[in-house]
Simulated scan of single mutants.
Amino acid sequence: MKITEYSQVEPFTTKDGSTIRELMHPNVGGSNSQSFAEATVPVGCKTLEHRHHGSEEIYYITTGSGVMTLGNEVFEVSAGDTVLIDLGVRHKIENTEGEELKILCCCSPAYSHEDTELLE
């Protein structure tokens, strides 16, 4: 059985500036090739524009709302929305409301700093 306890997973800051809690990752919990994390973007903050050359991402917004930039598209997102981020597509997200923006992030293959190219 592979399980992680939320309270036992220490958050860290990724290259894009978001605070991440890796809930399942090859280095945390023992998944083989993907990662599942909770990202938090504080009120009035945004992630740095970036892209991943080796990982596809899925964002699921659990709390709050904001503005997502995905390639040349800019659109609003809020709790309940799901966004697919294809390989190599530049992206960032900004918290534009009065509460924390929380996102569940799935990456396949698993997230790594080395696969994150900052664009700003």
Rank of each mutant, 00 (worst) to 15 (best):
F36R: 04
E38L: 11
S31V: 01
P26K: 00
E5F: 02
N32R: 14
I58S: 03
A37R: 01
S55K: 14
T14L: 13
E5Q: 10
R51V: 04
V9L: 07
I20Q: 13
E57H: 14
E57D: 11
T14V: 13
S55W: 14
F12V: 00
K46M: 07
P42W: 08
H52Y: 06
S65K: 12
S31A: 07
H25I: 00
E10F: 10
N72F: 08
Y59C: 06
E5N: 11
E22F: 08
Y59I: 03
C45T: 12
V67W: 03
E49T: 15
G71W: 00
T63V: 15
D16M: 11
T19C: 11
L70M: 04
E49N: 12
H50D: 06
G71K: 00
K15C: 02
N32D: 13
A39K: 01
V74S: 15
E38H: 02
Y6V: 10
E22D: 14
S65Q: 08
Y6F: 15
F12I: 02
S65N: 09
I20P: 00
G54D: 14
L48N: 08
G17P: 14
V74N: 13
V28G: 00
R51M: 11
I58W: 06
G66Y: 05
G64I: 02
G44L: 03
T69K: 14
A39E: 00
G44W: 04
I58F: 07
T62N: 02
Y60C: 06
C45D: 13
N32P: 00
Q8I: 01
L48R: 13
V28I: 14
A37Y: 04
N27E: 09
H52P: 10
T14Y: 12
S35G: 09
N32V: 05
N27I: 01
G66C: 03
E5T: 03
G29I: 02
Y59N: 06
H50P: 12
G44P: 06
A37V: 05
S65V: 01
G44K: 05
T47K: 09
I61L: 02
